[in-house]
Amino acid sequence: MLTTSLASLRLRNPVMSASGTFGSGWEGRTFADLSRVGALVSKTVTLRPRHGNPPPRIFETPAGMLNSIGLENKGVDWFLADTLPKMKSLGTTVIVNIGGEAIDEFVVLAERFSRAGVDALEVNLSCPNVQEGRLLFSTEPRLTEQAVAAVKRVATVPVFAKLSPNVTDITAIARAAEQGGADGITAINTLIGMAIDWRRRRPVLGRGIGGLSGPAIKPVALRMVWEIARVVKIPVLGVGGIRSAEDVLEFLCAGATAVQVGTAGFADPALMVRIVDELPSLLAAANVTLADVRGALHAAPAAAPAEGCARAGHERVRG
């Protein structure tokens, strides 16, 4: 009933973990039966080990949190030897998220993980916490296309491009990823933000700025998923602030094929499975199927000059 086709993958359901928020899944295995989630997406793996950023690395903000972890990970050799076998043993689809500072690095990672038999790759073009805050690939359509195309040339599994919301027009980047051959778009990564301790005249985070996640960014994520889904033919993986089955259906309605649960899983490691459990009853209560909801958002009015019009538009959206 919840089975979801995503590129060439067939998922048990559309609910997966968001990269960087659930480790490899192994850390959460005692809290819930993870074979019941649609897929597990690993924390970003880089070619060489990365120590990450100086603490403090996280800070809670209204309905969200800032992080500047800095892609701390032990590198591809460690991941292949230690982590991937554990991840595979969890009994669901395994997607490995890869990160690099140069296209060559993405290519090596894509080759090695394809050979290692992962189910799919997610290319992190958009971490805000490395490169001194410069978003190397995902703010430039041309570089996005080149990076994705280079990965696609060597990858033997589906490739999803994870995009940054910190751009003027995300649809241009999404189109570039599609042009490069991406099998899907993951949207969105975190919004760059900041917290300040005015008494010490210092930023709260060790690195100054960080990525904002959690329910606070859900409206932004919904808007961007909706915008992307209208301009590309490849599937969109929606992510940003999801913490309930209702949220999942909102993203599917906006045009997402599947979704990723991130920050909310910090508070509740069993949340993804709980959402999977709730989806059928939520759909049944509304007497609809996933297919009825997916991409079924009625067009909103192009402009809503007056409050009355906005309300009318809202009602239409709710259909």
């Binding site: 960087g20 603490p55 690395r57 992080n67 972890i69 910090f266 490691p269």
Partner: peptide
């Protein structure tokens, strides 16, 4: 006592040197 998001090893936010 550190600032933690998850407590079970996935957020990498509570690190100390």
């Amino acid at each position: 006592e550190t600032y933690m998001a998850c407590g079970y090893g996935v957020c990498n936010g509570c690190t100390v040197k």
